[in-house]
Design a protein around this nucleic acid. Structure first.
Lengths: 208, 208, 208, 208
DNA sequence: GATGAATGAGACTTCATTCAT
DNA sequence: GATGAATGAAGTCTCATTCAT
């Protein structure tokens, strides 16, 4: 049994450590998504993550830190991806469709929709959280949308006043999140079809 | 000092009882609105209502009953009022404007917006609650909106496909609720202006 | 509508008052018998007695007073009746049979058996209660039994050492109380037959 | 400093855990014995056991489980011991004396007498408890006694009718339990002497 | 006298957090 | 690093008792 190189061992450790941290975050999302912050038990998070309760405290200083860290970790990458879409070289409607496709795939199709619901739910209790989300997500996505709409308005593709309310473009997305989480089992909603109609309203019916 | 009529006395008691019940509901709303169901302490509700802890249990069987009763009591009257709008005798845009005015006044301008946020927040944990809200509110308001849009489509006032997604008409309302609750102090939103633009998109710009 | 005579009215009031007091005691027995002192709710006692909760406090200073008063009121009359049996003029076995008949009729056949169980159950928590019961019931019945046995021993009807342990004569009675209260539905016990065998053991088989 | 064997370490933990569990049961018995189920506070049990309130819940799911487990744990071993007495090879009186000696030593001389009083006290409120005790204790001990008495009757050592009521043999034992718990400080009872007289009555005076 | 709404101390139970192993 | 037994503050709910009507 030869001794491993110290460097490799350290690397293994770091890998295992990161994996464990991620397992805890994954489990935390599952649990927080159902019950929100207060009703979630760290016991359940630990069980789901396959670690002992105390282990959570090796990676996060307390329950609130885990919660906030979870929410943060879910949107950083996505916003990065969004901001890399080339705004300049595409027609506005095309851009909007791409953004909506990303939204459907990366938010509605994943547990990120639960994260958004969590932010809506816990925002008033954790003002820092709302503020962070505004700064990091809303404040970066809405201006992009606004730029897109402004450019479209300049080209006459869209009512110029819409550019003052980029929220209008994303509003059906919020409704879709809520509907999927609460009412989909009672009355399924065809989100993609709704989005197509929405875009037609904004940009006028597709002509191609 | 004439003896009061028994009826009057009974009425007094009933009045005081109803007032107390309402005081508890009011206090409960204030508290639940901030922290949601789990994080709210009945102690605080009692304190805010000016009653003793035990008194809450004279009016509501337990915390959950108080919560559900609160949500119910906030929407029964409003839906009633909405369904009394005469759908037939007005142009669709006029009707939509009235409904939005009611929404702004009775939901966004009151704590009903918090109730909606509560339903969004707690729905997954209380499926009965989501179901109830769907049956009593969504299931009664959306069909009204749909009828309105269908009629408008028949007259050529609106894209006929919109009638399949009445959610599109209310979507900015949901966004307004979320925005007011979370981000308004960071970036105020002119909801009425946004709504006007939204209606213009749906029905075409106002011509009068 | 002639005014009643004050005396009569007072008498009516006193009668009603006594009846009410008795109704509360009856209800209290029913409730205490099942749950013991601590688990019984005065609310339930009031409901069963058909009075308001506060009314109990017009007749008894508090829960414990009601409890003790209840136990006291159940044995005074019985002990009185027992002590009136003419000890002198009957054969010992005859006397014992009469006492046992009274026991079966007045204790096992009534809720007095529950009272005895209550004393067994609550004695250690209310030493005063055990003391009272010892003084008023045990201390008056056992000497009677002892006198009976002593006389019987003098006549050679019974082993002389039995007179030192009058508990031996009543022991099957205690067992009967416990059995009836706990196990009778699982395995019914023919108390009268058991008592006959018991007397045969004490006095020798009946010869008549 | 040699590393402990894993087995030993595990054993230590298991030992400590079992000890703690037993400490809680011991404390619970002390407390329940005085006040019965309802009047006992788990706070006091914890204090007496030298653990924190929450620790009780690591070992027992709730107050009732602790109570029932306590009663169970007190009689399992004893009944086992009793059923191991060789019924066949001894005269009936000898056997009865041994059983009574065990009863005096293991029940009257320990807190098991309090457990029996608890069963008498709480049986009507916890029918499951009475049933369990009947099945596990009464239903196993009484048949043994009955077999003993039947054999004795066949040999002419005892009145044959006694075998139909094995309760008669144990009745003075029940009385002794009650007396010791309630009245012994007022009037001490020589249980062993009483039992000897009782056996003489059953089997006729000892001749040896 | 009678009522029953109101009170609030106190019970059971949960769960975030700690720490010896 | 990892564990999970232990802690105890804090929450929900009950119920004996009071008191205005």
């Amino acid at each position: 049994m030869p001794a491993r190189r110290p460097g490799a061992r350290t690397s293994d450790r770091a890998t295992r450590s990161a994996a464990r941290r991620q397992a805890i975050l994954d489990a935390a999302l599952d649990e927080f998504a159902v019950g929100g912050f207060a009703a979630t038990r760290l016991d359940d998070v630990a069980k789901r993550a396959g670690v002992a309760k105390g282990t959570i405290y090796l990676y996060f200083s307390d329950k609130e830190a885990l919660f906030q860290e979870l929410l943060r970790s879910m949107f950083g990458p996505l916003v990065g991806a969004l901001t890399k879409i080339p705004v300049e070289h595409l027609p506005a409607r095309e851009l909007a469709e791409r953004m909506i496709a990303i939204f459907i795939r990366e938010v509605l199709g994943t547990r990120r929709k639960d994260v958004i619901r969590l932010i809506i739910a816990e925002g008033p209790r954790f003002p820092k959280l709302a503020e962070f989300h505004y700064r990091e997500v809303i404040g970066r996505v809405l201006p992009m949308v606004q730029a897109l709409l402004t450019r479209a308005a300049e080209r006459g593709e869209v009512d110029p006043r819409v550019a003052k309310f980029p929220q209008l473009l994303v509003a059906p997305g919020i409704v879709a999140i809520v509907w999927k989480s609460l009412f989909d089992r009672l009355a399924p909603l065809d989100v993609e079809a709704m989005m197509r109609v929405h875009l037609d309203l904004l940009f006028g019916p597709r002509t191609s």
